[in-house]
Simulated scan of single mutants.
Amino acid sequence: MLSFHFETGDFARVRFPAKPAPLVELKLSLMMTRRSDSAVVFGRWRRDVNHRLPPTTRPLWDLLESHRGPAFLDPLTSDLEEGLEVVRSTPGAVVRSDVAGLRRLPSPWVKALMARDTQAWEILDRGLRDAYRSVMGPAWTGVRERHSAEFARFALGSAEHGVAAALSALYPTSTWQASTWHIPAFHTREVHLAGRGLTLLPTFHWTYEPLIGAWPDRPPLLVYPAGPGLPVPTTQPEGDPLADVLGSSRARILRLLARPHTTTELATDAGLSLGTTSSHSSALRRAGLITTRREGRSVQHLRTELGRMLAEAGLSFHD
Rank of each mutant, 00 (worst) to 15 (best):
M1S: 08
M1K: 00
G9H: 09
A12T: 07
P17K: 06
L23P: 03
E25V: 06
S29Q: 15
S29M: 15
F42T: 05
R44N: 11
R47C: 06
P54K: 00
P55F: 11
S66K: 10
G69W: 05
T77R: 14
L84G: 00
V86M: 15
S89C: 15
V95L: 14
D98I: 12
G101Y: 15
L102K: 04
R104K: 05
K111D: 14
K111G: 13
A112V: 07
D117R: 05
W121M: 12
L124G: 01
G127N: 03
L128A: 07
R133V: 01
V135G: 05
W140Q: 04
R144I: 00
E145K: 11
F151L: 11
A165S: 11
I183T: 03
I183W: 03
H187S: 12
L193N: 04
L198N: 04
L201C: 11
H205T: 06
L211Q: 03
A214T: 11
D217T: 09
P220D: 08
P220C: 01
P225E: 06
T234M: 11
P237V: 15
L242C: 06
R252Q: 14
R255P: 10
H280Y: 11
R285F: 02
V299F: 15
H301I: 08
E312A: 01
F317Y: 12
